[in-house]
Nucleic acid binder design. Sequence first.
DNA 1: ACAATAATATGAGATATCTCATATTTTGGG
DNA 2: CCCAAAATATGAGATATCTCATATTATTGT
Lengths: 232, 232
Amino acid sequence: MGWIMETYKGKKRQNYLEKHSISHLFSFLIEEFIEVREYKRDEWIIHEGMRPDYLYYVIEGKAKIYVTYQNGKVSLINFINAHDYIGEMELLHEVYYTKGIQASAKTVCFAIPLYRCRDKLLEDTTFLRELTRFLSVKATRMAEKYSQGLSFPLENRLADFILQTADGDVYKEKHVTVCDFLGVSYRHLLHVLVQFCEKGYLQKKGRHYHIRQPDDLHRLADVLKNGLDMGS
Amino acid sequence: MGWIMETYKGKKRQNYLEKHSISHLFSFLIEEFIEVREYKRDEWIIHEGMRPDYLYYVIEGKAKIYVTYQNGKVSLINFINAHDYIGEMELLHEVYYTKGIQASAKTVCFAIPLYRCRDKLLEDTTFLRELTRFLSVKATRMAEKYSQGLSFPLENRLADFILQTADGDVYKEKHVTVCDFLGVSYRHLLHVLVQFCEKGYLQKKGRHYHIRQPDDLHRLADVLKNGLDMGS
DNA sequence: ACAATAATATGAGATATCTCATATTTTGGG
DNA sequence: CCCAAAATATGAGATATCTCATATTATTGT
C-alpha cells in the first residue's frame, strides 16, 4: 500500500522553505540540504524496525507512533504534530529499535539527510539546545502519562483526553484510535462513553459527541494533574 | 526529618572530583564550580514543587522520583542511578513543576550552580550533546514503560521487574516500593507473588524470594519486548 | 455500484485489580 | 529496651477491564 511519498521541487519547495523557515533553529545554512516531503494519510513515514536516513521536522499535518509487540499487539504510543521532530533517536544513537510512524492526515515535513548533516548537527549549539528542549518536554510528558495511566481508571484519563482533543464542544475522535492510545479495550471505552452520556456529561449526536457538562469532565480530568501544574 | 545534606570540602571533595571526573562531559572548566554533596537515605534531594538552583549529576547511590496528585495519591515515577542527571528540566525551562526526588541510599552527587553556569552550559556543545543523549534515552524508556504499563497485566511487568532488579537469583525489593512503581495495589502485588510461588517460579525464603525457574519468568517478561530490541 | 474491510455497537461471562478490614512482624528513634 | 510507625500478610467483596461472540453501519478500492 501507499508508499508514494512525494518530494516537492522547485517553486513549491521554495515556497515551503520560506513560509515555514526553520533557519533560526540552526546556526549553519540548513536550507540547501532540506528535502520537502509530503506523506499521504495512512502512509508510513518510518517503518517499524527500519533505520531512517533522515531527520524530520514536521511542518503540517499529524502522525502516530506505533510499536508492535511480540504477541502481535500493536500499541499507539503518541501523537506527532507540527513542530515535532521525527528520527532524532537515530541521529543520536548508533543502535536503536525504530518505532513505526504513520501519517494520520496529509503531512508535510522537512527531511534532513543524516549522511550529509549528522556531524554538522551534532556540533551545532543552537540546534542541540532546541533538540534538548524538545526531548525534555517529550520525556516529561511521557513520564506524566505513564504514571497517570497506571494510577487512574479510564474514566479520568478519558475525560482528560476528550477535553484535550475536542473541537470546540464536539468530541469526534475515532474509537479505535482512542482505545489504542489509552490502552483499553474497545468494549470498555464504549462502556465508559455510555456512562458519560447517561450522566449527562456528553450527548451523542450521530457519530460525534457533544460536550454537555464540561465542568464535570474537568473535575474528572483534574484528578490527573499534579500539585501546581504548568499547563505544558 | 533529615535535611542535613553534607557538602564535601577540601581533600574529600578533591578526591571525588578526581576519581569520578566528569570534565570530559564539558568543554569548559567545570571542576571549580562543582559542589560535592552527600544525601542520606530517605533525604530529599529535590522537594516537590520547589525549583532547584543546581543541576545534579549522580556519582553514586540511587534515588526515586515521586509525584503527588491532587487526591493525595503518590506515584513513584522512576529510579535514578549513578550517571543520571537531576534538575535538567529546570535548566532548560523557565517554568516547570518540579517533581520530588528522594535518595533511597546514601547518594553522592556533583551539584552545578545554575546561577553561575547556566549560560556556559547552554553554549557548550559537548555538554548539550551529552544531555541530549541522556534525555533521548529517558524519553524512550518512559515511552516503553508507558505502553507496557497499559498493555500488559501485572504478571508480565512483575516478571520483568524481578529479573531486572534481582541480585543474582535473589529478589528482595520492598513490596511497598514495587507497588508504587508498577502502579498496582499492595494486595494485588502479593497476590501475584503468591501465584509465582505456587507455580514454582519463585520460592519464598524469609523476607526474600529465590528465583527457581528464570526461564518461565523470562517467557512472561519477553512479552513486553518489541520486535528486535536493543537491550538499551 | 459492489464487495471487502474497517469501524461502530451491544451482550454476557471471565479476570485483573482495588478497597477495606484486620493481624503480625520488622524497624527506627528516643 | 520500648514504642510508634512502617512493612508484611491474608481474607472477602466490589469494580474496572478484558475476551469473545455477533450485528449493524461506514469506508474504500475497483
